[in-house]
Nucleic acid binder design. Structure first.
Length: 707
DNA sequence: GCAAGGTC
C-alpha cells in the first residue's frame, strides 16, 4: 500500500505530515521537500504543490481565443521555473501509489489546485480514486479529524473552479487583445492594453473619483478663531460659516470683548487595544507609517514568512487562536532586550484582542518567535511592526483624558478641546503612533480670559480626496473585488499600463479614455456586476443546478458580440486610444514648443522624445529607474529627473550645465505638526513632501502640480 | 503579449 497526500503549499505539507505522525521523515527531490511516514505497514508520502501548478493556455491559434486547456505553469510563465521541480516531484513520487488524498485548502481554488495536480501529475486514474480531507485550520486536531473522516471529492466544486478560470480568461484575454489590435490596425503602433473582471472596475472606481473631483465646485466658507491668553486658540462653535455676512456679524459682536469660560467638561475615554494584522491592515499600516506600497509590503511579508520569522501573510484573519501557542512565542521574543522590555509589562494570563474578520485557513499575521538576524532595513522595519503589533494586542487599553471647554465672547459661543494620555497601555508596546499629549491650561469655569486676537480665515470646501494604494485596497476589499492575495498586484498593473500615476492616484488620459471606450462596447466589464454575475453562476455549478459547459458556451456568445462590435469600430477606437496614450505620456515641453513624450517601446529602454518628430529630432536618454518630475530646470526649463540611490536630481538634459545634483530630500519648509524640517521625498509613483521626523511624525502633503 | 488566482 502506498498512500499519497497532496497539499496546497510546502508549509501545509510540513504541518500535515507532523500531525499524522511524530516520526515523519523529511526528504527532498530536486530541492522540493516531501515527507514519508509509516502507519501499520502502510507507506504515506506527503507532497506539496505551490499554489496553481497548471494554467490555462490557448490550444488553437486565432483571432478569438475560445479553446483553452491546462498547461504546466512554467511553460507559460518563464518566471515560474521553480514550479517544474514541484510537478516533477509529484510525478516521480506518486508512481507506485494506489491511494490518493486531496488535502488542499477547502475552497474553490484549493479544490482545483489539488484536482489538477492529481489529474495532470498523478494521472487520470488518481482522480477517480481520490478522497478529500476537509479542515479549516492546520492544527493537529483538525488534521487528524479530517484524515480519519475523508469525504468524496466534490466534482461540482472542481467544475466551478474551472469555470471561474475559463470565464476570466475568455473575457480578459480576448478584450485585451482586441483593444491592443485596434491600436495596431489604426496606427501601426504597439501599446499594451488590458481589461479584466477586476482590473477594469478598479480603474473605473478611480475614474469616477476623478470625475467627482472635476465637477466639484468649491464653496467659500469662513472659520473664526480666537487667540486667548495662555496660548489657547478657540474655534467658533458653528465651525464652517458659509455666509460672509454671518462671519462679519460674529466679528462685530466679539470685537474688544473678553472670553468667559462657561463650562469645562473633563472626560476619560478608553483607547482600545488594536487588532492583530490581516494582510489588508498590514498593507495599510505599512503604507501610512513607512510609505511602503502594498505590493512591497506583501513581498517583504512573504520573505519573512519563508525565512520562518513571521506567519503566513495572505490571511484575512484578525484572530489569534490559542493553538498558535502565544505564551511560547512571547517568551522566545524576550530573547531580544527591546521586545522583553514590552513583553514583561503584559498581564498574565495572556489574552489577545481580536477583530471580527476570519479566514478559513490561517490565523492573523504574527511573529513565530524565531529571531531574525541581518535583515535588510525595510524587512527589519516590517518585522518590528508585525512583532510590536502582536505584543500590543495583549496589552491593556489606554486612557485618554479630554478637556472640552465652552466659552463665550460677547454673545458668541466658542470651544476648544485638549487631549492628554493618562494611561499609555498598549501604546507602550506599539511605538509607531503619536500619543496625545496636550497641556491642559490652568483655568476654571467662570474665569475671564483676555482675547489677544480674532482671526477670520477664508477657506474653500475641498473635492473628495484621490485614493492612494492603501485606501484603494480597502475600497476593493469593501466591494469584494479581487482577493487578499491579488489586490496589490492588480493596482500595480494599472500603473504598469500607464492608466494611472502618482502616490495620490491620478487617472491618465489613457485610463479615462479606456473606461469611456469599454463603457460603449462592454458596459459589464467596467462594473462590479461581472464579479457578482460570476459568483451567482459558480454558485449554480456548485449546487448542481447549472452545467459548467453551458455557462462557458453562453459566455462565448456574449463575448463574440462584444468583440465583433469592437472589430467594426477598430479604426476609431484604435486612433482615439493611441491619442489618449500619447497625451498620457507627455512629460513636459520641448524647446521647439511641442510636447516632450516618454517613449516606452517594448524593445529597448524608455527615453524622452519630441512629439514633433521627425521635424524635431530632440531626444534624451534616461538613467535606469529615473522618475520624471513636474519641476522644471531653473536653467533651461526642461523637466528635472530624479534617479539613482540615494536619489539625486538632475536636468533631463544632462549637458544643460545645471549645477549640482542635489539629493532629492531638499528642505522645503517646516512641519506644521512637529516643527521639524519638511523635505521632498520621491518614490516610484512620484514626489511628495514629508516630515524629517518620520515615522514619529506622519505629516505628508502632495506637491502642487503646475498646470 | 493579453486575466485572475494560487504560491515561492
Amino acid at each position: 500500500m502506498h498512500e499519497i497526500i497532496i497539499c496546497e503549499k510546502p508549509k501545509a505539507s510540513e504541518k500535515i505530515a507532523s500531525a499524522l505522525s511524530g516520526k515523519a521523515i523529511k526528504k527532498n527531490y530536486k530541492r522540493v521537500p516531501y515527507y514519508e511516514l509509516q502507519n501499520n505497514g502502510k507507506k504515506t508520502t506527503v507532497l506539496a504543490a505551490v499554489g496553481h501548478l497548471y494554467s490555462l493556455a490557448p490550444t488553437k491559434r486565432g483571432k478569438k481565443i475560445f479553446d483553452v486547456d491546462w498547461v504546466p505553469l512554467y511553460e507559460k510563465d518563464k518566471s515560474k521555473k521553480y514550479v517544474k521541480n514541484y510537478i516533477d516531484a509529484i510525478k516521480k513520487l506518486s508512481k507506485d501509489a494506489d491511494t490518493f488524498i486531496h488535502a488542499c485548502d477547502y475552497d474553490i481554488e484549493g479544490t482545483l489546485i489539488g484536482y489538477n495536480a492529481l489529474k495532470y501529475a498523478c494521472g487520470d486514474e488518481s482522480v477517480n480514486k481520490a478522497v478529500r480531507m476537509k479542515f479549516s485550520t492546520l492544527t493537529t486536531e483538525d488534521i487528524t479529524e479530517a484524515y480519519q473522516n475523508p469525504i468524496t471529492l466534490d466534482l461540482n466544486q472542481v467544475d466551478s473552479g474551472i469555470a471561474r478560470h475559463v470565464l476570466d480568461f475568455l473575457f480578459g484575454v480576448n478584450i485585451s487583445k482586441y483593444l491592443t489590435d485596434s491600436v495596431m490596425k489604426a496606427t501601426k503602433r504597439y501599446i499594451q492594453l488590458s481589461a479584466g473582471r477586476v482590473q477594469t472596475p478598479t480603474l473605473s472606481i478611480l475614474v469616477d473619483r476623478e470625475k467627482e473631483i472635476h465637477k466639484f465646485i468649491p464653496e467659500p466658507y469662513w472659520l473664526i478663531k480666537a487667540r486667548l491668553e495662555g496660548k489657547i486658540t478657540a474655534d467658533h462653535k458653528k465651525g464652517k460659516i458659509f455666509q460672509k455676512e454671518d462671519a462679519d456679524g460674529i466679528l462685530a459682536d466679539v470685537e474688544n470683548k473678553d472670553a468667559k469660560i462657561k463650562k469645562i467638561d473633563l472626560k476619560k475615554t478608553k483607547k482600545p487595544r488594536p487588532f492583530p494584522f490581516d494582510l489588508g491592515s498590514l498593507q495599510s499600516e505599512a503604507y501610512s507609517l513607512f510609505g511602503f506600497n502594498p505590493k512591497k509590503t506583501q513581498q517583504i511579508a512573504q520573505n519573512l514568512y519563508t525565512e520562518g520569522y513571521t506567519s503566513y501573510p495572505r490571511t484575512s484573519s484578525q484572530k489569534l487562536p490559542k493553538s498558535i501557542g502565544y505564551p511560547k512565542i512571547l517568551k522566545k521574543l524576550s530573547k531580544s532586550a527591546a521586545f522583553r522590555k514590552q513583553v514583561d509589562k503584559l498581564k498574565k494570563p495572556y489574552k489577545p484582542n481580536e477583530g471580527k474578520k476570519t479566514d478559513e485557513a490561517h490565523p492573523a499575521i504574527h511573529p513565530t518567535g524565531s529571531m531574525p538576524k541581518g535583515l535588510a532595513k525595510d524587512s527589519q522595519k516590517l518585522y518590528e511592526l508585525i512583532t510590536y503589533r502582536f505584543i500590543s494586542v495583549f496589552g491593556e487599553d489606554g486612557l485618554v483624558e479630554t478637556m472640552k471647554t465652552d466659552l463665550t465672547i460677547g454673545s458668541q459661543n466658542f470651544i476648544f478641546t485638549r487631549k492628554r494620555t493618562v494611561k499609555m497601555g498598549w501604546q507602550e508596546q506599539y511605538p509607531f503612533r503619536k500619543v496625545e499629549n496636550d497641556d491642559f491650561p490652568p483655568i476654571s469655569e467662570g474665569d475671564v480670559l483676555k482675547v489677544k486676537k480674532i482671526i477670520s480665515e477664508e477657506k474653500e470646501t475641498k473635492p473628495p480626496a484621490r485614493y492612494n494604494q492603501a485606501s484603494l485596497i480597502r475600497e476593493l476589499e469593501k466591494r469584494g473585488l479581487g482577493t487578499k492575495s491579488t489586490r496589490a498586484n492588480i493596482i500595480s498593473i494599472l500603473y504598469d499600463r500607464k492608466y494611472v500615476e502618482g502616490n495620490k492616484i491620478k487617472v491618465n488620459f489613457l485610463g479615462e479614455h479606456l473606461i469611456d471606450t469599454l463603457k460603449k462596447y462592454s458596459q459589464k466589464i467596467t462594473s462590479e456586476e461581472l464579479t457578482r454575475e460570476f459568483e451567482e453562476k459558480l454558485e449554480g455549478i456548485m449546487g448542481g443546478e447549472a452545467q459548467k459547459d453551458n455557462i462557458i458556451a453562453e459566455a462565448k456568445v456574449e463575448i463574440t458580440s462584444i468583440l465583433d462590435d469592437i472589430e467594426k469600430n477598430k479604426l476609431k477606437i484604435g486612433e482615439e486610444l493611441y491619442d489618449a496614450y500619447r497625451k498620457s505620456m507627455i512629460v513636459g515641453e520641448c524647446k521647439c514648443g511641442k510636447n516632450l513624450i516618454l517613449i516606452d517601446s517594448p524593445r529597448g529602454d524608455p527615453f524622452v522624445g519630441c512629439s514633433g518628430y521627425p521635424e524635431c529630432k530632440s531626444t534624451y536618454s534616461l538613467p535606469r529607474g529615473a522618475v520624471i518630475l513636474k519641476t522644471k530646470c531653473e536653467k533651461c526649463d526642461l523637466p528635472l529627473i530624479s534617479y539613482g540611490k540615494p536619489r539625486q536630481r538632475a536636468c533631463l538634459d544632462l549637458k544643460c550645465g545645471r549645477e549640482g545634483r542635489e539629493p532629492t530630500n531638499e528642505v522645503v519648509g517646516t512641519c506644521p505638526d512637529c516643527g521639524n524640517e519638511l523635505i521632498k521625498r520621491s518614490g516610484r509613483y512620484g514626489e511628495f513632501i514629508g516630515c524629517r521626523g518620520f515615522p514619529k511624525c506622519r505629516f505628508t502633503k502632495s506637491i502642487e502640480e503646475k498646470s
